[in-house]
Every structure is written in structure tokens, then in C-alpha cells.
Design a protein around this nucleic acid. Structure first.
Length: 487
RNA sequence: CGGGGCGUGGCGCAGUCCGGUAGCGCACCUGCUUUGGGAGCAGGGGGUCGUCGGUUCGAAUCCGACCGCCCCGACCA
């Protein structure tokens, strides 16, 4: 095999591996505009499956989709002080249209809080109009200095949920409900188990009172912020006059939440499960779950093989398995194997003359357990009928191994900055320590360890024994915090 | 914005030092033979060498300016 066709191994250069995998698995390609990308059908197919799963969960919890416009008056963005400060450097602004200068510049949305709450203000009169539970699937633009395919691009696709509530408690519950949905989605669909919890003040969303996040650990032991859910308090409702008359007849400002996940999740998926052969797509998200490769000899077996392959494809489809028959005749079977492995299709079925004679199918799973044979020969009926179970097993095992990997690279009970640095320099991972809550400590960690506080973990992620002292060593700990180098 | 590197068929590169009118691998097209881990042979198509200007009989190659991209750093709800 020529070296040219291989991917750079992950262990050699993870960043190079990531870029090659994304391009060569045809998930995406660079566009003519710096920092923006084209999402190709294989990558978009994965995103569509993510969308469908999330959308179902949003709908099941009472949310409705709507669509708000791409262009937002600059003055809207400027209204919330922290919000504009957070986004100002990365705004793309339209100043000319229709052949002349605009009276007021229009911002291409970096996020839609301002336009959405200004509209809610128009629609909400009474507590009876609350809660408002909306979501939109949209593109947004943030002019990043340095971009990476899927992980940070100038334009990206996401969903942003925006809700309005009559009480702070209810809004807070909504924020946590969504955080739970995100976590469930990442675990059950992506096999990417995040640590969830609260963001520190310096890491929270510009304009939020509190931000909650899902932080996932990639294979290079760097953290990826994979989803955020914000309790906005009344910050935006005050600026946009989103008021309602309460049951008691008082005029009050509504309480808001916003939450989002983006196409960045596709990058997270790649960095969670990919290997040196390419991407690995969990069955529940795979646009194609099983690819069938017929082995065509130059004798009279070819017709029978083709017929059998088509029959097997149909029977799998009847069982609800997304199946592709790869009947291209100009490629050798081996070349097809490499291609579909690179793209991460969970299972491959080979059908050749020998299998026909034996009434069997050759099955190859994209990732085989340690020590297992790559190919298994299984009686045809069993191979077909058992496929849904095999897909489920694979899905489960991907999550299990990701959880194992996360736990193996979670370091608890660390008490000194030097130790944190040592761990991060040696292997990377999530480092749990105590923290006083003083932002100066975060600055120190950044300077000394190149690490940021990723998340103040929720209860189920905290260490059994709470840390006594702040990592700085000069104050008692007020909370446990997770440090990591991050994307 | 600072430091480094690179622009040559679709992709990856050689050729640049030492000027003579462009080559290799992959991919692509046609035909035949093939197909159980990246097929073989034969034939074929495709590049004003990033742009503009200069030097020269002659520039991918030398000189100047500009443009673009990548990497490291700064920056990054």
C-alpha cells in the first residue's frame, strides 16, 4: 500500500490527523472564503441525524421551532452591555445594500438573543402568555481569528433555543432540563459522555447570569465545549422591554434562557471515536449503517452474487437498517473497504461466491473488540436478523469505551498548580481541584498551565471527598472545578 | 499584529541555487484483462507555473511590488 493513501496516525500529529480525516472522509471541504467551510453530504447526513434526534427531544418537552432573520440591527446587539463586549470583535457587519450606505448597519447574527427577545416583547402581555418555548435551526457568523473545520468556523449551523418564563425558578429549571437533554443526546446518540456543570464567571456567555455546559474529552485529552445552556435572568428582558402582567397584577420582567449546540458536535464525534483508519460514526447517527460489498468474479457466479446482495440489502432495510449496496464495478473490494472504513460506516457485509455456496455472509465491524477477528462468517439468516442487535451493541460499546477513556484521564484530588501542569504536560485530561472562586487563580492557571476552568461539575461528577483547599494553596476551597486545555 | 513556511494540471510534489519554453505519483477518460484488504497492461486528456511590472534574444527559474494560503504565538460566549 502506498504511504500516500494512509492518514497521518493520531499519535504522530493529532491536528494533522483531524484535518485529513475530515477532508478525506468527505465530511467537509474548505470554501473559497477563509474560515468558512462546505459541509459535504456525508458530514451533513450525520448532522441531519443529530438534528432529528435533538429536535424530537425538544418537541417532546414542549418546544416549537420558529425562524428569526439573519440580519440584526447593530443597535440591538449594543443594547446589552456585556453581550456586545463579548461579541464586538467577531461581528460581521453589513453597511451597504441596494447600492447605497445603510442608515443603520446590520449585523449578521452571531446569536439571536436580541432580535428574539425584542419580538417576544411584542407577543407577551400576560403571565398567561408564558412560558414561551421556542427553538430555531439556523446559521450564525462569528469572525474568528483562527478557524478549524467544524470546531471553529466563521459560519456554522446550530440550534438556539430561547425561552421566557414568569419566574426565575422556572427559567432555571428550563436551563437544567436542556442541559440534561444535551447530556442524554451526547451519551446515547454520540457515545460522547460529557461532564456537565456550571461555567465560571469568566467563561460564561456574554450577557448570561449563569452558563451551564457539557464538556467532553477528546482523544488528545483536550476538552471540547460541546453544548451550553444559559440562565439569562432578566438581563435581556430589561433591555428589550419584555414585560408581563403577573397573576397578582404586577408588571414584571420575564426570565429568559438560551441554549445551543452546533455543527461543532460533528468535530467532537470525529475526535471522540476516530482512529487511524478514519472516522467512526455511531450507528444511531450513521447515514449508512451497513454497506454491502459484493465480490464479483469474472465467472458465472457474478449474477447470483449481485442478486443475493440486492436481496440482503432489501431484507436489512425491511428491518429498518440504513443500508447501501456498493455495486460499483470499477473498484476492487479492498478499495471499497478502505473507503467505507474511512467514512466510519459501522458494519460491512461481504457477499461472494463462497458465501453463496455456504449460505453465509462475511461481517466486519468498523471497530472490533480487542483480540477479536476482523471478519466473522455468520449464517445468512442470523446475520440479517441479528443486525439491529449488533448495531445496538456497537453503539453501547462506543459509549462504554469513551466513558472508560474519560475516567482514565480524569485526575482527582490534585492539590498543587505544579501537579496540574505536570499532568497536562504529560498526558492531558480533566484535572479536578478545589477553588476559592477567585478569578485571579484562573489567570494563574492560564499562565502557568495553559489551562482554563472548564466546568464546575454537577453533583454526580464531583469527587467523593470534596477538596479542602483552593488549588492556589492560599485559600479554602469553595467549589470543585475541572481544569483542562481546551479547543 | 509578530515569527516561520508555501503558492507549478483536481490532489500531493519535483524542477528555481546554475534562465533555453514543464515533469512525476495519485486521480480522471478509452479498451482489454481483473475483483475475498487500496488491480494490471496499453493508449489518452488536462497546467498562460498566484498577480502585476522589470531585467534578458529568451523567465516557473533573476529583481521589485502586491495578493492569497498554512503553521507557531497573541486572541477566542
Amino acid at each position: 500500500m502506498s504511504e500516500e493513501k494512509k492518514l497521518t496516525p493520531r499519535g504522530e500529529d493529532f491536528a494533522a490527523w483531524y484535518n485529513e480525516v475530515v477532508l478525506r472522509a468527505e465530511l467537509a471541504d474548505y470554501s473559497p472564503v477563509r474560515g468558512s467551510m462546505v459541509i459535504r453530504p456525508w458530514g451533513y447526513g450525520i448532522w441531519e441525524n443529530m438534528q432529528r434526534a435533538l429536535d424530537d427531544m425538544f418537541k417532546a418537552t414542549g418546544h416549537e421551532n420558529a425562524y428569526f432573520p439573519l440580519l440584526i440591527p447593530l443597535s440591538f446587539i449594543e443594547r446589552e452591555k456585556e453581550h456586545v463586549a463579548g461579541f464586538a470583535p467577531e461581528l460581521a457587519v453589513v453597511t451597504r445594500a441596494g447600492g447605497k450606505e445603510l442608515e443603520e448597519p446590520l449585523v449578521i447574527r452571531p446569536t439571536s438573543e436580541t432580535i428574539i427577545y425584542s419580538m417576544y416583547a411584542k407577543w407577551v402581555q400576560s403571565y398567561r402568555d408564558l412560558p414561551v418555548l421556542m427553538n430555531q435551526w439556523a446559521n450564525v457568523m462569528r469572525w474568528e481569528m483562527r478557524t478549524r473545520l467544524f470546531l471553529r468556523t466563521a459560519e456554522f449551523l446550530w440550534q438556539e433555543g430561547h425561552t421566557a418564563h414568569a419566574s426565575a425558578e422556572e427559567a432555571e429549571r428550563e436551563t437544567l432540563l436542556i442541559l440534561g437533554i444535551y447530556r442524554k443526546f451526547m451519551e446515547e446518540w454520540m457515545g460522547m459522555p460529557p461532564i456537565t456543570g456550571l461555567k465560571s464567571d469568566s467563561e460564561k456567555f456574554a450577557g448570561a447570569v449563569r452558563s451551564y455546559a457539557c464538556e467532553a474529552l477528546m482523544q488528545d485529552n483536550k476538552a471540547l465545549q460541546a453544548g451550553t445552556s444559559h440562565f439569562l435572568g432578566q438581563n435581556f428582558s430589561r433591555q428589550f422591554d419584555l414585560k408581563f402582567q403577573s397573576e397578582a397584577g404586577q408588571e414584571e420582567y420575564a426570565w429568559n434562557t438560551s441554549w445551543g449546540v452546533s455543527t461543532r458536535l460533528v468535530g467532537g464525534l470525529v475526535m471522540s471515536h476516530g482512529d487511524d483508519a478514519g472516522v467512526v460514526v455511531p450507528p444511531k447517527l450513521a447515514p449508512i449503517q451497513v454497506v454491502i460489498v459484493p465480490i464479483l468474479r469474472g465467472d458465472d457466479s457474478a449474477t447470483a452474487v449481485k442478486e443475493k446482495a440486492a436481496e440482503v440489502a432489501n431484507r436489512l432495510r425491511e428491518l429498518g437498517v440504513r443500508t447501501r449496496l456498493d455495486d460499483r464495478e470499477n473498484l476492487s473490494p479492498g478499495s471499497k473497504y478502505y473507503e467505507w472504513e474511512r467514512k466510519g460506516v459501522p458494519f460491512r457485509v461481504e457477499i461472494g461466491p463462497k458465501d453463496l455456496a455456504q449460505g453465509q455472509l462475511a461481517l466486519a465491524r468498523r471497530v472490533t473488540p480487542e483480540g477479536a477477528r476482523r471478519k466473522q462468517f455468520v449464517p445468512e439468516g442470523e446475520a440479517i436478523a441479528g443486525m439491529p442487535d449488533r448495531l445496538e451493541d456497537f453503539q453501547r460499546e462506543l459509549l462504554e469505551s469513551a466513558v472508560r477513556r474519560r475516567e482514565e484521564h480524569s485526575y482527582r484530588g490534585v492539590t498543587s498548580v505544579g501537579e496540574v501542569k505536570e499532568i497536562l504536560d504529560a498526558t492531558g485530561g480533566f484535572v479536578f481541584t478545589g477553588w476559592s472562586g477567585d478569578p485571579a487563580v484562573e489567570q494563574t492557571m492560564k499562565d502557568v498551565c495553559k489551562a482554563t476552568s472548564r466546568v464546575i461539575p454537577g453533583e454526580e461528577f464531583r469527587s467523593e471527598t470534596p477538596p479542602e483547599n483552593c488549588i492556589s494553596g492560599d485559600a479554602p476551597s469553595r467549589m470543585e472545578v475541572v481544569w483542562a486545555r481546551a479547543y
